[in-house]
Design a protein around this nucleic acid. Sequence first.
DNA 1: AACATATACTTGACTAGTCAATGATTATGC
DNA 2: GCATAATCATTGACTAGTCAAGTATATGTT
Lengths: 143, 143
Amino acid sequence: MFVVNPALKTLMNLAKVQAVISRRFDRLNIHGIGFNDFMILYLLQQSAAGKMRRIDLADQIGLTASGITRMLLPMEKIGLVAREANERDARVSYVVLTSVGKQLFEEAEKTASALAGEIIPALKPKEMTLLTDLLTSLGGNIT
Amino acid sequence: MFVVNPALKTLMNLAKVQAVISRRFDRLNIHGIGFNDFMILYLLQQSAAGKMRRIDLADQIGLTASGITRMLLPMEKIGLVAREANERDARVSYVVLTSVGKQLFEEAEKTASALAGEIIPALKPKEMTLLTDLLTSLGGNIT
DNA sequence: AACATATACTTGACTAGTCAATGATTATGC
DNA sequence: GCATAATCATTGACTAGTCAAGTATATGTT
């Protein structure tokens, strides 16, 4: 029988786990938004200025710039975020969190937290630290 | 500042990490197949009979049955897998690994293993065990 | 036997992204 | 100071899935 690299098996399990979790979240359709939309609201909310460049959002959530452009279109349409120019650099278009967006985030965060608690088993502090460190070493730098 | 549930942050980092990893794999386009196609070949190859029901493939890789139907179409077309009926149950259509599929898998496994080794940092045995256990507890049961 | 329910798979209509190319602007090397 | 390169964002064309509904078959109940 063929034996594959343990690292590769780990990546396969990671892929599976993520597929199942994200479908579970998106199926809930928390307040009308998907999980990635939720992440965008979260990042904007915790950013100092309440606004971010599209390219930085892309880097943070791990999608491409064009993916961000496409995700933001419906969010702009329903007024969760808005556009703002950068006076120094005309290439940049900031994404600003609106008060509607902020309010929706705060509601959605309750549902999302509850579901996250169901999904992630209760871990000992030591385990939680290790898991966080592991994800960080794999590029998961969302704080 | 709003403080979110650590479990929720973990899920956001998981989503990000997986998005980046899967894009990196798919971009390589290993021997013309994507990462999920690779997983299908792997599961078929390590199954005792070299064949599986579509629904079991779906469960194992964490997608829906209809996703599996759609993924398999091009794979059948290029001859990596084939269909086989179940004599006892006419609803079932097995997915069989062809010799072409098996050969491609063995080639692709080399490339995939090498990339997996680059992505997953060298872990101490204890850490590796914990990571595996964690993924298992989240539903990652690929062995 | 007949009916209700469950399971396996597929399909139509759709969403969520990808990549490659392009446009517009800003930064850099000489 | 000007050509070249780099950066930010968008668009066209496409792939990879999702869900809900439908078809076909199997199983369980009375």
